[in-house]
Amino acid sequence: MDLRQMEVVVAVAEEGGFTAAAQRLHVVQSAVSSTVRALERELGSQLFERTTHRVALTPAGEAFVPAARAVLRAAEQARAAVDAVRGELRGLVTVGTMQGVWAGLHRALASLRAEHPGVIVHLRQAAVADIRQALREGTVDLAVVAFDRQQQRGLVTRLLSREEMVLVASPERAFAEDDVVAFAEVAPLPFVDFTSGWAIRYAVDRAFRAAGVERVTTFEVNDIVAASELVRHDLGVCVMPTSIAARFPDLTVRRFVQHVPTWKVMVARPRGEAPPAVQALLRHITPTPGQS
């Protein structure tokens, strides 16, 4: 068993098929298939269930893939340690992000690239629940994300920013007050909500429960721009963090007078010592001025 075989199996598992894995690894599909078959013969167990429609992990494969990921990470850390002794920092850092959330990440990436051009960064954009799972599985090295207290368990976290969430509406929509609003007033309105699994959705759901009122989701989207377009055409209202709402200056913003939903963005990573490349990026990720 060698690292290449592990890399191939992990690629097939993550891509969901042999063809996609071959494209990711820049090899022909037959090479991927033969590598997996050779490893299965060596292990004496089938790692994948193969049908004409899909490829799925067997119980043995489910046990093998996390261990293989750990070995591949350890090998990468060993290479990075040797490079560091030579005064060179290299490696791959996979960063989980949520749509519309940067919290200064772009500045950190620019500083990292200037300081260590040999470090490669992959950004993986996903819903908060998927990022949490990826951190647990080790497929993401760190994340800039909005986690609640329960989601932070088992992780090392550091607060980057804290802000209120606000109601965003079309200028054509009238409210009792010009700058503030209550949950009871907005609950009967058509709502543009983000899909379940989004951190914004979690925060908004909690705020409505705290206020003791229910809303009806008229539109459910997984894109911030799509949400703004629906609001712009007065098809509904939406709750967003202040920093995201500020990207749409043509829309009106109102603060909540009670049960104000809050938005906490943090950098999170698995427990344990981080690889040198991850540590280098973490040093450049700092709290947003005036929000922490």
Score class of each variant (00 low, 15 high):
Arg4Gly: 07
Gln5Glu: 15
Met6Asp: 08
Val9Ala: 15
Val9Met: 09
Ala11Leu: 00
Ala11Pro: 01
Ala20Glu: 13
Leu25Gln: 05
His26Phe: 12
Val32Ile: 10
Ser33Trp: 08
Ser33His: 10
Ser34Ala: 13
Val36Asn: 04
Glu40Tyr: 03
Glu42Asp: 13
Gln46Tyr: 06
Phe48Asp: 01
Arg50Thr: 14
Thr52Leu: 15
Arg54Asn: 11
Pro59Tyr: 04
Pro59Ser: 05
Ala63Asn: 10
Pro66Leu: 05
Ala67Tyr: 07
Ala70Arg: 13
Val82Tyr: 06
Val82Asp: 12
Val85Tyr: 09
Arg90His: 13
Gly91Met: 06
Thr94Glu: 03
Gly96His: 01
Gly96Cys: 03
Gln99Phe: 01
Trp102Asp: 15
Ala110Glu: 13
Leu112Ala: 07
Ala114Met: 09
Ala114Gly: 09
Glu115Pro: 06
Pro117Phe: 08
Gly118Tyr: 07
Gly118Trp: 05
Val121Pro: 04
Arg124Phe: 06
Gln125Asn: 11
Gln125Trp: 09
Ala127Val: 10
Ile131Phe: 00
Gln133Cys: 08
Ala134Gly: 09
Glu137Thr: 01
Gly138Glu: 00
Thr139Tyr: 00
Asp141Gln: 05
Ala143Trp: 01
Ala146Cys: 12
Arg149Ser: 13
Gln150Tyr: 11
Ser161Ile: 06
Arg162Pro: 04
Leu167Ile: 08
Glu172Tyr: 06
Ala176Val: 15
Asp179Phe: 10
Asp179Thr: 15
Ala182Lys: 07
Phe183Val: 07
Glu185Cys: 05
Glu185Met: 08
Val186Gly: 04
Ala187Cys: 04
Gly197Ser: 02
Arg201Gln: 10
Arg201Pro: 00
Ala203Glu: 09
Ala203Cys: 08
Asp205Trp: 01
Asp205Phe: 00
Phe208Gln: 03
Phe208Lys: 02
Phe208Ser: 02
Arg209Met: 12
Ala211Arg: 04
Arg215Cys: 02
Arg215Ile: 03
Thr218Pro: 02
Thr218Val: 07
Phe219Trp: 15
Phe219Glu: 05
Glu220Arg: 14
Asn222Phe: 07
Asn222Arg: 12
Ile224Leu: 14
Ile224Met: 10
Val225Asn: 12
Val231Ile: 07
Arg232Asn: 11
Asp234Glu: 12
Leu235Arg: 15
Met240Asp: 02
Pro241Ala: 11
Thr242Tyr: 10
Pro249Asn: 07
Asp250Leu: 09
Asp250Cys: 02
Arg255Ile: 07
Phe256Tyr: 07
Gln258Ser: 15
Val260Tyr: 04
Pro261Asn: 09
Pro261Ser: 08
Pro261Trp: 08
Thr262Cys: 10
Val265Arg: 02
Val265Lys: 02
Val265Met: 01
Val267Ser: 04
Arg269Asn: 07
Arg271Gly: 08
Pro275Phe: 03
Ala277Met: 13
Val278Asp: 04
Ala280Glu: 01
Leu282Trp: 06
Arg283Lys: 12
His284Gly: 00
Thr286Met: 08
Pro287Tyr: 03
Thr288Met: 11
Pro289Gly: 09
Ser292Asp: 14
